[in-house]
Simulated scan of single mutants.
Amino acid sequence: MKKAAVCWVSVGGGPAYALWCLPVEGALLVVSGPGEQSAPGLADATGAQVTLRGDHGGRIVTWPAQVTRLRPGTEEWTTAAPLVAAKRLNASGPSAGLVDRWAAEGCALNRLAPAGAPVAGADLPAGSLAEEPRPAPVVRTTRKPFRLHRVRRR
């Protein structure tokens, strides 16, 4: 978990969403909300399933997580938010401004801590869990490439 940069989080048995995360002290910190990544249901959840994958895309482990929302103005927020903001890729402006924006816009900074035994390797499914991409407003249909001449098939 300490090498994780992306985790897949499922809340309430729903679909898993790939989320950028920051490992800190045996837990993962995840920020979501307006202007940040989408994590439906995570802001108000108390539990979730977290899946971590290896360098080649294969699942390494899935574990139940206790979800704790860190609130602006608390000591936990003051400690964790600047760490997450400093590691945030492609952020516009300085990290202090990012932390202020998260607090003002109601973004959720959640701590995902292990809350039970991970799923053992023998309990993982043998087949693929690949799914069709979920519909999203940013997805466009792919058109066939334009060809100037006819391609002969042998």
Rank of each mutant, 00 (worst) to 15 (best):
A5G: 03
A5T: 15
V6M: 07
V6H: 07
C7W: 05
W8Q: 12
W8G: 01
W8I: 05
V9P: 10
V9R: 03
S10H: 03
S10Y: 04
G12Y: 05
G13F: 12
P15L: 14
A16C: 01
A16K: 06
A16I: 03
Y17M: 05
A18V: 01
L22F: 10
L22P: 01
P23Y: 04
G26D: 11
A27E: 11
L28Q: 06
V30L: 09
V30Q: 05
V30Y: 02
G33N: 09
P34T: 08
P34R: 06
G35S: 01
G35M: 14
A39I: 10
A39R: 02
G41K: 09
L42S: 02
A43H: 02
D44Y: 00
A45M: 07
T46H: 08
G47S: 14
G47D: 15
A48S: 05
Q49T: 14
V50S: 02
R53N: 07
R53I: 11
G54W: 05
G57Y: 07
G58M: 14
R59F: 00
T62P: 00
P64L: 15
P64R: 09
P64Y: 10
A65R: 08
A65Q: 11
A65C: 08
Q66Y: 00
V67C: 02
V67D: 08
T68P: 04
T68L: 11
L70F: 01
R71S: 10
G73Y: 05
T74W: 03
E75H: 03
E75V: 10
T79W: 06
A80G: 00
A80C: 11
A81G: 00
P82D: 02
P82Q: 06
L83Y: 01
V84S: 02
V84M: 08
A85S: 08
K87W: 11
L89E: 14
L89H: 09
L89F: 13
N90D: 15
N90G: 02
N90Q: 12
A91S: 13
G93M: 14
A96R: 12
G97T: 04
L98S: 11
L98T: 14
L98I: 12
V99S: 01
D100C: 00
R101T: 12
W102D: 10
A103C: 01
A104D: 13
A104T: 12
A104M: 06
G106K: 02
C107L: 04
C107R: 08
C107N: 13
A108S: 13
A108F: 09
